[in-house]
Amino acid sequence: MAEKTAEQRPVQAAHDVAQVDLAASQLSAMVDGELVDAEINLALRRLSRDGDVQGRWERYHLISDALQGHLPAALDAKFAMRLRQAIDREPVSQPTTRSLPTWYKPVTGFALAASVVLAALFGLQLTQPDAALTSNHSIAAATRAPSTASPAQTALLSSSSANDANEPTDARLNSYLVNHNGHASRNSVNGMLPYVRMVGYQTNR
């Protein structure tokens, strides 16, 4: 909507009004929890940029809280500013999770933090994983050795050497594998096997 009116340059003033109204109605909807995710992102981005919108956000929340009888004893008028500072300090946007016991690492889907599954699936064809991991020289040698090195071998070597330095890479590939098995068990006549594979991969290193 707003993007379309933006094309009509001559009526800049009307456009600005429309833009503000849209932002305002979006904010209002967000305060009421009625925005879909994509719109929330957009509104949040506006909120973090625009001082006017921040002021509006505060007022809407105040209105909403007052209507629902949730007003605190004291009001913090600088909430939006502090929120923005807090957002700026965050390295990346993290999905919100509730606080949980330390043993419990909640992640989305079947993601997991261990590097074992990956090592199993993507390291199996390495004949000398230790040598390859400890020395760049042996990696080069191993890749060169068979003149007709299959893409599989070279890929494995490069992915394993990257694994050492890059733990998150492992975690991501792991999560893919485990995620796959979770769905495989749901869609196969032989639903027990995928879980068995999940357990079985671990010592194949």
Binding site: A120, L121, F122, S150, P151, L156, S158, R172, L173, Y201
Partner: peptide, 9 residues
């Protein structure tokens, strides 16, 4: 992350 083929069982 991975280019080419890989296999486990």
């Amino acid at each position: 992350l991975l280019q080419g083929a890989s296999q486990l069982g």
